[in-house]
């Protein structure tokens, strides 16, 4: 029973990682860049929802929608001002810009909202389902997190595979030049990707803060790095890979904490990542690209 409850909390944590990882993987797939500022967009989403709900007493749903809107706009602005001018630049220059953006968001948050931690009250009411005569309890938040993750995944897969915009995205990630020749507006498509990724980050931020209720300007750092790891774990650029990677990472982390060592849980997660990458160098579901001479 204990095993089952660990498994469920692992899936719940993994779902949050998966939602964040989707943002990384989509942006990587299309713009071929590691968006280090993504973790900090999560933090911004958390703060917006916190202020909407706790300060102005709005309904949690309104708070979430506000967080999504603000993060979407933020994502587009970041892309417009920091990344778009560097489309042709070497990858490392873009990486450093993304890191600069991450510092910028963290320090702006610190100036605007202070460096102290705030206690986030969960957007989902307390309460839980009980099974097997109360031996296994699952709280509402866990259920909501998992459901949200599934809905997002299904929605995204449908969007990417069935809509015209999704087709444009796939085309841009295959070959930008050819896509442009076919009449696709590459810049808009990339902006759209950032918008979707940032909106997802807002949702992830709210769920994350509901589960781990301390909110401060560096809240997004560690989940950001973990989700990035999850994206690589599953094969960066692959959407199902982000889901698989996120879930596995969450489950491994919870199991490592429960059965092996609390202090070393992070080390164990990263060690597993290294081993997986050594066996499958492009991640679990990544495509193997053979170099041609």
């Amino acid at each position: 029973m204990l095993f089952l409850s660990y498994l469920i909390s692992g899936i719940s944590l993994g779902s949050i990682y998966a939602i964040i990882a989707l943002g990384y993987t989509m942006v990587y797939g299309i713009a071929k860049m590691l968006n280090f500022a993504h973790g900090d967009v999560i933090m911004v989403g958390g703060y917006i929802c916190f202020f909407a709900c706790s300060y102005y007493g709005l309904h949690p749903l309104v708070g979430i929608v506000m967080a999504m809107v603000v993060c979407t706009v933020l994502g587009i602005l970041i892309d417009r001002f920091a990344y778009k001018p560097l489309r042709q630049a070497p990858a490392l220059a873009v990486l450093i810009t993304a890191i600069g953006m991450s510092y910028f968001l963290q320090n702006s948050a610190q100036l605007l909202w202070g460096s102290g931690s705030r206690v986030f009250s969960s957007v989902i009411g307390k309460g839980s389902f009980s099974f097997f005569d109360g031996q296994l309890t699952i709280n509402y938040l866990t259920v909501v997190t998992i459901v949200v993750c599934i809905v997002i995944m299904v929605g995204l897969v449908w969007f990417i595979n069935q809509t015209k915009r999704g087709k444009a995205m796939r085309a841009c990630s295959e070959d930008k030049g050819a896509a442009q020749l076919m009449g696709i507006n590459v810049d808009n498509t990339i902006s759209l990707t950032f918008a979707i990724g940032s909106a997802l980050a807002a949702i992830a931020g709210v769920l994350l803060c509901s589960a781990y209720p301390l909110l401060n300007p560096t809240t997004g750092m560690m989940p950001g790095i973990k989700a990035f790891t999850a994206a690589v774990f599953g094969g960066i650029g692959s959407i199902p890979g982000a889901l698989v990677g996120g879930l596995l990472l969450g489950i491994i982390e919870i199991f490592a904490k429960a059965y092996l060592s609390t202090q070393f849980s992070d080390a164990i997660v990263f060690a597993v990542l290294i081993i997986v990458l050594l066996v499958k160098p492009t991640g679990l579901l990544g495509k193997k690209i053979n170099e041609k001479v």
Binding site: A89, T97, Y103
Partner: peptide, 14 residues
């Protein structure tokens, strides 16, 4: 410092 970093990268690469 953050703004300096971003501007440096933009100035040298755009």
């Amino acid at each position: 410092y953050a703004i300096f970093l971003i501007l440096m990268m933009l100035a040298t690469n755009n």
